[in-house]
Design a protein around this nucleic acid. Sequence first.
DNA 1: TACTTTATATGACAAATGTCATTTTAATTT
DNA 2: AAATTAAAATGACATTTGTCATATAAAGTA
Lengths: 202, 202
Amino acid sequence: MTSIYIAEDQEMLNSALSAILNLEDDFTIIGNATDGQTALREVISLKPDIAILDIEMPKMSGLEVAGELRLIKQDLKIIILTTFARKTYFESAVIAQVNAYLLKDSPTDKLVETIHKILDGQTIYDANLVSTILTSVKNPLTPQELKIMREFAQGKSTQEIADAVFLSNGTVRNYISSILSKTGTHSRIEALNVAQKNNWID
Amino acid sequence: MTSIYIAEDQEMLNSALSAILNLEDDFTIIGNATDGQTALREVISLKPDIAILDIEMPKMSGLEVAGELRLIKQDLKIIILTTFARKTYFESAVIAQVNAYLLKDSPTDKLVETIHKILDGQTIYDANLVSTILTSVKNPLTPQELKIMREFAQGKSTQEIADAVFLSNGTVRNYISSILSKTGTHSRIEALNVAQKNNWID
DNA sequence: TACTTTATATGACAAATGTCATTTTAATTT
DNA sequence: AAATTAAAATGACATTTGTCATATAAAGTA
């Protein structure tokens, strides 16, 4: 009998998954959480065989929880279950050595199947996810540019950004100019839209 | 026996809900869709007692489907099941005379309970949703201002907006100035952030 | 050491943006 | 019709933004 813990902040999915997995006669759900902190605490104390973690949760993300858990419990099987195929998320997941990374955009059968496979020692990355990552436009912005973009995403003026980042007003303008040229745009808002569409910012 | 149709584009939730509701011995799921168009077509042909509709779906939103269905089938019970508590969504739902409006942020029990209640003739609006709507800051922007905001949200320049909306460059600047003053900001991006936070734009 | 990058800064300029006071025009109301 | 209100436009102005060419200093490399 395989014991499973579910952390998912969308109640409807959380309870639905619990019910479904409980139907399988070789699985038991031994706990649920709707935030990362509780999940981390309870997985440690309840010691399930498998932890299914959503990424976007209050207090602590599923990826952070995964990272912590992997340090403590080498043998725990971790499944990341999330909505979007973000490159940065996927990378963190790989670093945390999760056993599976599934998208909510696949049916529950797939989840059940995945659980069986990882119990068998396999590592599963959703094919859909992998292809999205491979075909995604890679971020041409330097870390500095990224940082500055995050600043003006909040609506800050050039001067406010300069103060925040300890650069001169002119330098900030240069960086922004470079951002615009790399994104093929002519204004901050356009650049933000491009970045948004390509998931360059979190 | 009550027949139910589910339209939900997140496969995981779709299949999970189907499985759960099928467990109840007075319900049968007679169909599923992951986009609005198929949902509309199939609900018309399959004639379920209840249609559960997500709002954000490809091709046609759940609200549009609800509107169409209500015109054709007065006796059909419609449940809107969605993630966010948006005022505009809720208003459209009321106009389409849906029988229930639930948030995915409530457990499946609640859904089952709601189905029973609407079969009993009641109309259910998620309490959580209603309170969110009531406490939400109401949009101070005029329809014109809203329209212009949607334009610059796409990154358009003043002139481009003027051309799109058939106003003079100066008038557009005046409207934007008014938007900034109403939102208590001094730049388009800041204004967008405020609008975003308060769900004034869709 | 000399050469080359890389990050930061300056200055100068045109264009766009945001602010206001005022005017014109159109639509509503009395 | 006259008065009021609302919508759109103008003009004038200070700032901000975006673009470029160029300079300087620091860091890395041959």
